[in-house]
Nucleic acid binder design. Structure first.
Lengths: 222, 222
DNA sequence: CAATTAACTAACTAGTACGTTACTTGCCCC
DNA sequence: GGGGCAAGTAACGTACTAGTTAGTTAATTG
């Protein structure tokens, strides 16, 4: 019955496994970041790059594994960036400020990553825990902070009783909150924490805060 | 054909609108906090309190409005708590430390609230923006911080150039991050930010940090 | 160049999810 | 004590959604 002639497939994808895989990962990152794990739709991810859902199952196994792959790549990016950070030539005070600023900038530049971290925390980090790549590797940033902290204490400029992991938490807190919670904070307090014209203010504020803590005479206030 | 006799409905709910409404709100808070907006299931919320989905539509109109109602109540709780905070009798330094500790404690005690805030930020605060109750009222905490800040500056103990809203952001950052991101942080750095035996350490750290910032000679580090 | 396999497509399945319709039951007040 | 209405129930409908099955097309290689 005059079935439609089979499509020529001329509009089909080029056969390029690497590209298809990479494209899936790219749009999956966007979709998961935008809509959350449950909110993201496998069909939509496929449609956006003009492939089919089947390819996602072909390359990643399933929605869950795709999300894990997205996280793995997102974390690989910061680790790589952290690996390249070079503050060894600076004195401890300048080094900490520089490190804080780099952390600040990274958060500013990767709002999607921040959203993925929020989402993964809603899921109690189950994907990170289930990923050998993620749960085994540790962060280069901690090593760097540890060395600066040691040097600063040896020189007598850092007096606070804090270790590298906790200091990293302190720095990340501010950077993370500012980006992750900008919507509710803006709606409730009428202040856009990510407004371009206040960026430098917050960047300086972070450095001031961390250094005041590290170098301050904490006994003073108690 | 011998249809089962109609259920006696003896096991039906008491007719108590207020209780039904309140119960829906309670379990909806739990479910939304646990699974996110998209992840939570209207049927499950109804089933958990032995009512039917229809009641949710009866009292709230829909899933979206239910989530908004959940947020409204959650924020009402902190506002009420903030209203009751009494630090007027303390000197500025002690008042800020006390305020930071109260914020810290509130975050510690209400992890569900923290999750709801994370979730609402994923949704770009659309429910808060759409709620007159939430977007119009402002936080009592800001007023309190403003007054302490003024007093501290008048006395010459606070030197930092910061306003109440930004200081609130700084304090909240640390409290929020510690609870909200404990899963990914724990998985990546092997440190439980919410471990009971480190609670006091972080509580003190927060106060030290904020006060060092406020009272410190910021010119020193630059 | 033929056999093999990697890459890709379409259609389907089974289960799920929100929201609605139609109906029943108990309470309150005149 | 009965009319009226608030409170509650059950079952349905439509749309969606993760994952699967079965088959096709292009590249590679012996």
């Amino acid at each position: 019955m005059t079935a439609a002639p089979p499509p020529t497939h001329s509009s089909g994808r080029q056969r390029d496994a690497a590209r298809t895989r990479a494209e899936i990962l790219d749009v999956a990152t966007e979709e998961f970041a935008r809509l959350g794990y449950t909110g993201a739709r496998v069909d939509v991810i496929a449609a956006r790059i003009h492939t089919t859902k089947r390819m996602i199952y072909y390359y990643f196994g399933g929605k869950e594994q795709l999300f894990t792959a997205v996280l793995e790549r997102a974390y690989a990016v910061i680790r790589q960036q952290e690996q390249g950070l070079d503050v060894g030539h600076l004195d401890p005070v300048a080094a900490i400020r520089r490190l804080a600023e780099l952390t600040f900038d990274h958060h500013e530049e990767h709002p999607d990553f921040i959203r993925l971290v929020s989402i993964e925390n809603i899921h109690e980090a189950e994907h990170i825990i289930g990923s050998a790549t993620l749960s085994e590797l540790s962060s280069p940033a901690i090593e760097v902070i540890g060395r600066i902290l040691e040097e600063g204490r040896a020189q007598g400029v850092f007096t606070a009783d804090v270790d590298a992991v906790d200091l990293h938490a302190m720095i990340s807190s501010f950077c993370f909150f500012r980006v992750a919670n900008r919507h509710t904070f803006g709606a409730l307090f009428g202040r856009d924490l990510t407004a371009a014209d206040r960026r430098q203010h917050y960047r300086t504020m972070l450095g001031d805060m961390v250094l005041a803590y590290l170098t301050g005479d904490t006994a003073r206030e108690r």
